[in-house]
Computed example of a mutant assay.
Amino acid sequence: MFSFKEYSQEILVTIVLFIVLMLLRVIVAKLIRKFAKTSERLEHRTNLVIKYVHLLMNILVITSLIVIWGVDTKDIFITISSITTVIGVALFAQWSILSNVTSGMILFFSFPFKIGDTIKIHDKDFPIEAEIEDISAFHVNLKTKDGERIIYPNNLLLQKGISIMPAHSYEEKDFFD
């Protein structure tokens, strides 16, 4: 039978862990929103990054709860190895998706271009000059001066050379052509 006295320490630590998780979620969300506001990032991209960070925090809390409640190490190992195997096979089959999501996170925090910028992608086979319309978790939406819409994977943006064109490059080209 379950006794509160027998598990009082685990219950107390679990409650503290959940309180810390909630506080950290609020603090981290505010910090990411502050970063996004100062670096002029879009709200839906900010929310996506916050979701990713919250997911990571939840995984860490679940792992902590397993340790706190003293689940048998053999059971943990079997469970984690099974889950890792399934996830590993799925991710290996879909490595480009993971690569694009990771690239989307890198683009959010560190890349110098933003929505509205005109960029030139230095690709030997398929050079592109276009305006960035949106940056999502998997791809970037581009629009050329001819109105063509291009969906470009995030991971390729990190692999190719990129030039950020002056803010009014299309107008100048139209004026001189």
Rank of each mutant, 00 (worst) to 15 (best):
V61T: 09
N100Q: 09
E6H: 08
S163E: 15
R149F: 11
E131V: 10
G88K: 04
V20R: 04
M57R: 04
K51M: 08
I76G: 02
I128M: 04
D123K: 09
L12F: 14
H44K: 14
F92I: 10
V16C: 11
T144Y: 05
I135S: 04
I27T: 06
F4P: 00
I162N: 03
I132A: 08
Y170M: 04
I62R: 00
M105R: 03
S136V: 05
T85R: 03
V28Q: 08
E148W: 02
N155G: 00
E131N: 09
S103G: 10
T38V: 11
G70M: 00
T102Y: 15
Y52H: 09
Q9P: 00
S81K: 01
I119K: 07
W69H: 05
K124W: 02
L142D: 07
L98T: 12
I80G: 02
G147Q: 03
Q94S: 14
A36P: 08
V67E: 10
V28R: 02
A93C: 10
S8V: 09
I115Y: 02
Y152A: 02
V13S: 04
I78H: 00
M165S: 09
S8Q: 13
L17M: 13
Y170R: 14
A130Q: 03
Q159L: 14
V13R: 08
F111Q: 15
A90K: 09
G161Q: 12
E172A: 07
L157R: 07
H122P: 00
V61P: 06
E131P: 00
